[in-house]
Amino acid sequence: MRTVFWRRLDLQGLEKLDLSVTDDGVRATSTILSTEGAGFRLDYDWRLDARWRTKSLELKHLGEGIARHLLIERTAVGWLIDGLRRPDLDHVHDVDISATPFCNTLAIRQLGANPGDELTFDVIYVDAQSLSSVASRQRYIRKSGDVVRYVDLATALGFEADLRVDRDGFVVTYEGLFEQVRCS
């Protein structure tokens, strides 16, 4: 079991992630509190296979007194969103939630270890405030052993940031957005 805390740098927000890794896969459960918009709480239960690829992701959002839910599942026939097949997402490799740097870990763990290695793929981008989901394209470029450049190629076209990561691919600092917080 591993616990990671991240703090938002661009607004008030905190995330507590609990991670469990077994031979069968990975389970990440988290709570995010954010002042974005009118403020919200987002809980997620992310189930990954042994290669750190999404099997399912359940999100529970509470904001402005309204509770909403979203379930994303990878199946043999494609991605399901709340039980409905989404053929527009057939080409998608994995999932990205706007309010957490944990999703970057999934890509970084697949990125080569050598400076200059690149990985470009499509994701289901989930806006944490609205729980809307669309396909988006991203690129990761290894700058050094512990620095990866993130480049958004669709949803936030032109956005780029350096991510400093630990040996397991977890974001330590995400330029301008997140930093890991150590507990004493």
Rank of each mutant, 00 (worst) to 15 (best):
N104L: 09
D146W: 04
T31L: 14
G63P: 07
R51N: 11
G13C: 06
R109F: 00
N114D: 15
A99Q: 00
D117Y: 06
R51W: 05
Y150E: 00
I81Y: 05
L62P: 01
V4W: 00
I108E: 12
V95R: 13
S20Y: 01
G116Q: 06
D96G: 07
T22H: 09
Q129A: 13
V172L: 15
E36H: 10
E73Y: 10
S56V: 00
A154I: 03
S136P: 07
L62K: 04
F5W: 14
L48P: 08
D10Y: 03
V95S: 13
F159T: 12
A154Y: 06
L70T: 08
W79I: 06
V165G: 03
E179R: 12
R164K: 14
R2M: 15
L163C: 09
I32W: 03
Q110G: 12
A128T: 02
Y125H: 07
F170W: 13
G39F: 03
M1E: 14
T3Q: 15
I97T: 09
S184V: 07
L70Y: 08
Q129L: 13
D23S: 11
G13E: 08
V151R: 11
E15V: 06
M1W: 07
G78H: 08
R86K: 13
E160M: 08
T35K: 14
L131H: 01
D146G: 10
W6P: 01
